[in-house]
């Protein structure tokens, strides 16, 4: 393997890895840094299971190259909780039974947080469209939308 050195920040920590130039950031995160909370459902940007933030923007990490992460800030599901305190979205996903198999959950949480960071009081329709890039095959989305509504309420109360 001919690797390129990448210096990046993942969930606030400085991280260094080497990868081939054609490797996806998804593979780098999973196979080189061990962040297997980032899931691969399709590898073509259609399912959102690999959702992360890159400099605060929501992206599918399967559509980003590992080398593109150089000098950037990455956020994954592993960085959502504050120490032993879960993020309100994480709490409300559990409380609302918003996951069944759970494979899509990390992507949904990252996408929902990206929404709530920009809009702390989204309508049901805004939630549904913000999460339309994330596929869930178990829940029919009902309890996911309710969890995001509950979390947005919690976040507003906090402020």
């Amino acid at each position: 393997m001919t690797g390129t050195l990448v210096n990046t920040t993942v969930n606030g920590d400085a991280v260094q890895f080497a990868c081939p130039t054609d490797e996806s950031l998804l593979d780098s995160l999973r196979d080189r840094i061990g962040l297997t909370g980032v899931k691969e459902g399709c590898g073509t940007g259609d399912c959102g299971a690999c959702s992360i933030t890159l400099d605060g923007e929501l992206v599918c990490s399967c559509l980003v190259l590992g080398v593109e992460a150089n000098g950037r800030e990455i956020g994954t599901v592993e960085g959502l909780a504050d120490g032993d305190k879960l993020h309100p979205l994480q709490d409300q996903f559990i409380n609302n039974a918003a996951l069944q198999c759970g494979i899509c959950t990390p992507g949904f949480l990252v996408a929902a947080k990206a929404l709530l960071d920009k809009n702390n009081n989204p309508t049901e329709e805004e939630i549904r469209y913000a999460l339309a890039g994330n596929l869930c095959r178990c829940t029919g989305y009902d309890k996911i939308v309710r969890a995001v509504q509950a979390a947005s309420k919690d976040l507003r109360k906090k402020k």
Partner: peptide, 9 residues
Amino acid sequence: DGVDKVTGR
């Protein structure tokens, strides 16, 4: 298994 599944663990 909720916490494991919302933390990526």
